[in-house]
Computed example of a mutant assay.
Amino acid sequence: MDANTVSEDQGGELAFWLRLQWLPGVGPVAARALLARFGLPQGIFSASFDALREVVPAGVARAILQAPRPVANSQLELTLQWLSQPGNAVLTLADYAYPSLLLEIPDPPLLLYVRGRPELLSRPCVAVIGSRNASTQGMQNAAAFAEALSHAGLTIVSGLALGIDTHAHEGGLRGEGATVAVIGTGADLVYPRRNLDLAQRIAAQGCIVSEYALGLPAIPSNFPRRNRLISGLARGVLVIEAAAQSGSLITARLAGEYGRDVYALPGSIHATLAKGCHALIKQGAKLVDSVDDVLQELQWPAAAGTVAPAHPLLAAPAHPLLAALGHDPCDADTLAARSSLAMAEVMGELLALEMAGLVERLPGGLFQRCK
């Protein structure tokens, strides 16, 4: 089938939705205004110029009355092929299954491309987000909090990025709530490729969702924009780790604008990846150091027979060097002075602790306790 000969009859209503999505000068806000005035997309494309001009500028009205753009036809064929594969779905704004919480944000997407279980998008969700360049402890926290929240029946939403997102999804998959990955590419692609196996498991057990057209590659501007969907789907947003200029702060800000709760884990005042969380707390985010804190704020019952993990670093194994290290990053010279050990002995013990997963080596010759 020639992509440029796909008709609206062959694609049914989807053809009109795709045609609306690809109209030049029409974003989600203008499209929603048109839908509010004319109903379904079919009504928009059958409206008169004068009627359209009551909602959109003249240039946009003329574009609506023109024949479908070739890109809309080619996308229709590609989408129909994709929909023929098991587990794939497209939700429009008019679908009953479209998540109601997204309808509350100012610019919900016209279309959601879904792989996996679309019903998860309408279940109670908590977003767990944070830095791509996370610390070992931060990634452990993300997995532990996400798993406990998922066992309590909450679906974990995150962005499939490396670092905190990856471990949040892993934790979510271990509980009954499962996980939703909101991605910044077409739903037929996986970015980053290192998360290909994880994405396949999410598609099988949870849900992958994108507002972007099939085949669209990773474009930097897409990722801040997809953050509004992470915030929009969730009842609350938990920030595990974030630097002062982290993209996670965009998601948290949007969550606040949408009336969602924002939670942040505190950390060391010397830790770069705690700066963003501390800034959020200063701005009114709720300081949490256990899953119980999140569940109480949400007025959500804890899972029977499970213990919500407390904040890290509360019960480390006894070791003199760990005691000297404390909970802030520290260099080897300072540790030698604190512990009265020779430098060679300090470095040997640090290596052993690092291999045991109790200490993490940071940039700049610093070390940080993990447990």
Rank of each mutant, 00 (worst) to 15 (best):
E119D: 13
E119V: 03
L120H: 04
L120I: 06
P124C: 09
P124I: 05
V126M: 00
A127V: 05
A127K: 04
A127W: 02
A127C: 10
I129C: 11
Q137F: 15
G138S: 08
A143H: 12
A143I: 10
A144E: 08
A144H: 01
A144K: 05
A146D: 02
E147A: 13
S150N: 06
H151T: 10
A152K: 03
L154R: 06
T155W: 07
T155H: 01
S158V: 03
G159A: 08
G163E: 01
A168I: 03
G171Y: 08
G171N: 05
L173M: 08
A181G: 07
T185P: 03
G186I: 11
A187I: 03
A187Q: 02
N195S: 13
L198M: 13
L198D: 11
A199R: 08
A203I: 06
A203D: 11
C207T: 07
I208L: 14
V209W: 06
S210T: 08
Y212I: 00
N222R: 11
R226W: 00
R228N: 04
G232D: 05
G236I: 06
V237P: 10
L238D: 11
V239Q: 09
I240R: 06
I240D: 11
A242K: 11
A243T: 14
S246F: 11
G247D: 05
G247M: 06
G247V: 03
L249R: 07
L249P: 03
A252D: 12
A252C: 10
R253D: 15
G256D: 13
R260W: 06
